[in-house]
């Protein structure tokens, strides 16, 4: 699903955000990306959505060479990828339903398709009963579930979650990760960048650790190292 070959990202100042990164993520895999703040986790995720272009190396997502992609092809790449962030980014003046439907509307989906897919996505994250609520009426965990529904509604092959539990209490965090795992079991590849030791240790999934822009550890049933906590 994802392949990074000898990828280096260097800023104009010369500082390298990532150096010689090699990583392969198979289809339907679940991966925790760990590392201290500024290690390069977000940069790595942005490489996959082509928000960042590597200075060197190749990035392949769903058999497509992202580095060689024309700007006009990028939107079609992003339709294969769902994204969830720490800053939840819901539209405050729209209901939960409208927030989820927004992702479909911008790709020109018909009203029939929207009426069919939005309830499914909300049902998956357990938020269908709050479809008419506005974001201000929701808790942090509920907002993140809505953001997750918005990412899911386009039926992505790959789900990128950048610190999705960063602002949540432990119970909500576990709910979100449980949801991500459920989505993963349905066949979606999930890459989750996190600082949450408890979660990484509890689920024992593949863990890739980045420090100073380099991958320093890649374990199949890994834990969050104590020194990172």
């Amino acid at each position: 699903m994802v392949q990074l070959r000898d990828v280096t990202v260097r800023y104009e100042s010369g500082i390298a955000a990532l150096q010689n990164v090699n990583l392969t993520v198979e289809k339907s895999e679940f991966l925790f990306l760990v590392g201290p703040t500024g290690a390069g986790k977000t940069t790595l995720l942005k490489l996959l959505t082509r928000e960042v272009i590597p200075s060197e190396g190749t990035v392949i997502v769903a058999d497509k060479d992202v580095t060689k992609m024309k700007p006009s092809q990028i939107p079609y790449l992003r339709r294969l990828i769902g994204t969830v962030f720490q800053d939840i980014l819901l539209l405050p003046d729209r209901t939960v339903w409208e927030n989820v439907a927004f992702a479909l509307r911008v790709t020109g989906a018909s009203s029939g398709e929207i009426a069919r897919e939005v309830p499914k996505a909300l049902e998956t994250v357990g938020m269908l009963h709050k479809a008419k609520a506005f974001p201000a009426e929701l808790s942090g965990g509920e907002k993140q579930k809505v953001a997750l529904a918005r990412a899911l509604v386009v039926k992505p092959l790959l789900l990128l979650a950048d610190e999705p539990t960063g602002n949540l209490d432990p119970t909500s965090s576990l709910e979100i990760v449980d949801l991500l795992l459920r989505i993963n079991r349905q066949g979606t590849t999930v890459i989750m960048a996190t600082h949450d030791k408890a979660i990484v240790d509890a689920y024992r999934k593949r863990v890739v650790e980045i420090v100073g822009g380099r991958i320093v550890r890649d374990e199949l049933r890994g834990v969050f190292r104590r020194e990172l906590a």
């Binding site: 959505t49 700007p71 006009s72 939107p75 992003r78 994204t83 980014l89 911008v106 790709t107 386009v154």
Partner: peptide
């Protein structure tokens, strides 16, 4: 700006934005 960011991330073409 939030709408635009979301649109770009979910795969809206630049002319759709």
């Amino acid at each position: 700006r939030n709408e635009i960011r979301i649109m770009q991330l979910v795969g809206a073409t630049v002319w759709t934005v």
